[in-house]
């Protein structure tokens, strides 16, 4: 079922909730036909990570002039900023990019999905490969418009000894999905794949991931946290597959969500599909609301209720932010999130 790939040119590929992998993100309900193609446009350099410097590559309405694909070599400290900007109202585009981190290299990729228009449809597809002993940190910010439909699908192939760290932070869209598929060869490769969502209004965000362990001694750790307000809807689908022979796999996954309104919704489906016996796999999944006794405690000590609530929510989500190793990226995401709480 995960084989179904959304292609804006082919309306028969628009999944409805009857497709199990899209059960909670029903594209067909909102999109039936191929949207008109987005026109060419330009944007000034910048974006949410501008302060961190480094090289910038911008896809505007799906196009990036003379884009050859990214090939990262060496262990430079400067990050690369990859921007996907939508500027045309009601139009659609489908950018594709390939990123290769060659053996032994290191890349910090700061990716942003920026909405500067209303009601657009963006379907971004990335192919990423991380070579032997190489390391990729991918920080993804979702800044889509409230009425946009935005889908991002990344296929990540790791080589033995590779390190892949990913954090996705988003405030949702009308319908938004970040999907990551990782092929994990084990043999010293390790994956950390975190995410956070802070949603309000009628926004929807879906973090979906599939990590397939095919070799010995692979490690995966995943922490996804989210907060929903108003009538927003958060979706988490995380699947860890351990194939036959992938012994020594150690995989942990946790998803924790807070619903801070009466009509907010959270749907979660963590999956463990395991065909090897010498493994340690676990997942935890909680949905709840703020701890009343903690709120009470803080108010007793003089904090107004609103402030106490904000502080607890922030502390809850910052756990994900704190796990980002790259200093600049971590503080950038923290700032971005603070502005949204």
């Amino acid at each position: 079922m995960t084989a179904q790939r959304l292609d804006l040119r082919d309306p028969s590929s628009f999944p409805s909730r009857r497709v199990e992998a899209w059960k909670y993100t029903d594209v067909r309900r909102l999109l039936r036909d191929t949207p008109p193609a987005s026109p060419e446009a330009e944007v000034a350099p910048g974006g949410p990570f501008a302060a961190l410097g480094g090289e910038e590559l911008a896809f505007v309405n799906g196009r990036c002039e003379g884009f050859p694909g990214i090939v990262a070599k060496g262990r430079g400290e400067a990050p690369m900023r990859l921007r996907f900007v939508s500027t045309a109202d009601g139009a659609g585009h489908q950018p594709e990019a390939a990123i290769e981190v060659t053996a032994g290299s290191r890349l910090v990729l700061l990716e942003s999905h920026e909405g500067r228009a209303a009601g657009y449809v963006a379907n971004t597809r990335l192919k990423i490969s991380v070579g032997e002993g190489a390391s990729l940190t991918r920080i993804v910010l979702g800044e889509d418009a409230a009425d946009a439909l935005a889908f991002v699908r990344a296929e990540v192939t790791l080589s033995p000894g590779a390190t892949f760290e990913q954090v996705t932070a988003t405030d949702g869209a009308r319908l938004q999905r970040f999907e990551t598929h990782v092929s994990h060869p084990g043999q010293g490769a390790s994956v950390r794949m975190d995410g956070l969502y802070a949603l309000s209004g009628e926004r929807h965000a879906d973090l979906t991931s599939v990590v397939t362990h095919a070799g010995l001694d692979g490690q995966t750790s995943q922490l996804v946290k989210g907060v929903v307000r108003d009538t927003a809807r958060g979706v988490f689908q995380g699947k860890i597959v351990v194939e036959r022979g992938a012994d020594g796999t150690d995989a942990r996954m946790a998803h924790n969500a807070l619903i801070l309104s009466e009509r907010g919704e959270v749907d979660a489906k963590p999956e463990l599909i395991i065909y090897a016996d010498d493994v340690q796999c676990a997942h935890g999944n909680t949905v709840g609301t703020l701890d009343e006794s903690a709120l009470f405690y803080m108010q007793q000590r003089g904090l107004p209720a609103e402030e106490a609530r904000a502080l607890l929510t922030q502390a809850f989500l910052f756990e994900v932010v704190d796990r980002i190793e790259h200093d600049g990226a971590r503080e950038g995401v923290r700032e971005w999130l603070t502005a949204r709480l």
Binding site: C281, G284, T289
Partner: peptide
């Protein structure tokens, strides 16, 4: 294999799920 679904549409719910797989 472990495939648990949680669908929460009320803010006052408290749901916890944990799963482990070992030999």
């Amino acid at each position: 294999h472990t495939i648990p679904y949680i669908e929460a549409r009320n803010g006052s719910a408290q749901l916890e799920h944990e799963a482990t797989t070992t030999r």
